[in-house]
């Protein structure tokens, strides 16, 4: 078991190194460099040379990559060009805000998805199942920026129940963030819940067809007990990896949702950083997204391994 965990962790680490290389090479391959991007029209002659000197852009790319990686290992993400501040400080707050937003979405979305999925699975092909399933397909297929705009139009512009766009700063206390994140979290929840719900529904249906449920039914176990003791726990297992993937997807989704709602998180920062051509910051954020993706995947795999002994056999 331990060897397996270590091996999975090792391959995750390798993935991260590859991701950081890709990010670096990608930014290198772009025309211009951090200095021409940052200085724009002023970037010529002596000013440009001075900037390149300051950022160390005159040295070979490989050398810079090794140095960047070395500092990264010491926890130094570098300095933002546009903001003139350590990247760790800028990113830290936004990361907290994005975690708050994602946590609200996950805490509402996952129980909701499981609940709806179980109901739909139990009432397979009934009218309730049709309703839930069609709604989930709609929720899945509408892009975030459209559902976000629709939610704003309904709840902020027409009904006036809540404010549409978040107007608090990035250092706001967590409780204020939670109340500001109602609409953005709802937008994320829509898609997140739809994906997980469909997975739960199909695995509930599989489990209902299984021999042990048939056996339980023949033994006369009450339906309520069959559902809660046998069907739900077993149908959640396959859903775990989907939940892991969906949480990782959430980080991509927040880029759009945070921009539309002006939520001061990592996603909006990513868009701003690209707009400002703040390449060191873009690099750091891309890596952070990569890290989250890898870590959530690793965690969901490990949880599945822990809960399902059958998966552990591929040890050889």
């Amino acid at each position: 078991m331990l060897a397996l965990i270590l091996r999975r962790a090792g391959s995750s680490l390798l993935t991260l190194v590859l991701v950081s290389m890709l990010v670096f090479v990608g930014l290198e391959a772009m025309p211009g460099d951090a200095c021409t991007a940052h200085l724009g029209r002023d970037g010529k002659g002596a000013v440009l040379e001075a900037c390149r000197e300051r950022m160390g852009l005159n040295r070979p790319a490989a050398e810079r990559f090794i140095e960047w990686g070395g500092r990264l290992l010491q926890g130094d993400l570098g300095t933002s060009m546009q903001r003139d501040k350590p990247i760790a400080e800028i990113v830290g707050w936004r990361l907290r805000n994005t975690i708050v937003l994602s946590a609200v979405a996950v805490l509402v979305g996952i129980p909701l998805a499981i609940f709806l999925g179980v109901i739909a699975g139990l009432r397979r092909d009934g009218s309730l199942d049709h309703l839930i399933s069609s709604l989930s397909i709609i929720a899945m297929t509408i892009p975030e920026f459209i559902s976000a705009t629709i939610l704003i139009l309904i709840f902020a512009v027409s009904l006036g129940w809540t404010s549409g766009v978040v107007t608090i700063g990035y250092k706001a206390p967590v409780m204020e963030l939670v109340s500001a994140s109602i609409l953005p979290a709802a937008t994320l929840t829509l898609i997140l819940a739809a994906h997980i719900m469909r997975m739960v529904r199909s695995s509930v249906i599989d489990v209902l067809d299984s021999d042990y449920v048939l056996m339980a039914r023949l033994k006369g176990v009450p339906r309520r007990q069959i559902v809660w003791r046998h069907v739900v726990p077993n149908s959640l297992l396959p859903a775990i990896s989907v939940i892991g993937l969906t949480i990782a997807w959430l980080l991509g989704g927040v880029v759009i949702v945070e921009s539309v709602f002006n939520y001061p998180g990592l996603g909006r920062l990513a868009v701003d950083a690209v707009g400002d051509r703040d390449l060191p910051l873009v690099q750091a954020i891309a890596l952070l997204f990569g890290l989250t993706y890898v870590v959530t995947n690793l965690l969901s795999d490990l949880v599945a391994l822990f809960l399902n002994p059958r998966l552990r056999t591929f040890r050889a």
Partner: peptide, 18 residues
């Protein structure tokens, strides 16, 4: 003044009376 870098978000805020 509220910082709203995204132009779409500024319009949403305008339409929503913010």
């Amino acid at each position: 003044f509220t910082a709203i870098p995204d132009s779409e978000a500024r319009n949403q805020a305008m339409l929503g009376g913010q």
